[in-house]
Design a protein around this nucleic acid. Sequence first.
DNA 1: TATTGTTATACTCTATAACTATA
DNA 2: TATAGTTATAGAGTATAACAATA
Lengths: 133, 133
Amino acid sequence: MAEVLERLLTLARRLVPQTGLSLTAAATLVRLAREGPSRVSDLASAEGVTQPAMSQLVARLERDGYVARTPSPQDGRAVLTALTAAGEHVIAARRDERVRALATLFAEVGADDARAIAAALPALRRLSTITNS
Amino acid sequence: MAEVLERLLTLARRLVPQTGLSLTAAATLVRLAREGPSRVSDLASAEGVTQPAMSQLVARLERDGYVARTPSPQDGRAVLTALTAAGEHVIAARRDERVRALATLFAEVGADDARAIAAALPALRRLSTITNS
DNA sequence: TATTGTTATACTCTATAACTATA
DNA sequence: TATAGTTATAGAGTATAACAATA
């Protein structure tokens, strides 16, 4: 299992980066699309990086036009980061690109293997959403 | 499928880096263990990075004592990179660490999910070893 | 005092371009 | 000329430590 996960990571690393977004950057944008405007510290803990790392990532995403930042009305210390239309567009394009790449891959494995993987997807989804402490 | 893979990557990113090896560094060491002394250009194409990137990675691995480099007897231009005992040790420790982390995770999913994932592992292994052009 | 966020600094990792040495 | 590798330079991405502003 550990070895398979390692190999999947290598595979994913080659499959993905065409869109010019790092894994953390893409995951952060997807999260903003799912959960709406969020604070830096919440994004940092959700993605498992430090607050300064997320602060800088958000700064790069803002520079590239994918997010916009506004002060929080409730808390003068906090900043709300929100997805822009360009941000929505880039994650949609990335999803399409990946779906296409996966379809190409799946065309090369047998039908039995494709079925076995499809059958495990719900379990893998639950595995991947466990919030590890 | 694309979304699940994305989430698995996030999970893996949090699961792994305790050993202080990047994904590429670990994959390179594992490859050296499996295939023996290799040339920089072969490692680079195998891991999907450029030759300079692999050259620098090998330099860091050598500095840390995980690999040793010797000139190739057959080709004066080439360099053979080989795993050291310390390199073998670090990937063994990393594998143990990951197995432990995965065991902890699996304890939190149900037995049915664990069975479904286990059933898909051979298919996932074949999927992950497709050499994409 | 505690929390939220940024800035400063340093290192890994990656890329492209330019270079050296060997074939 | 072509191939194997390194060096130069630049930028993303990460961490820890120090800081400013607000609660």
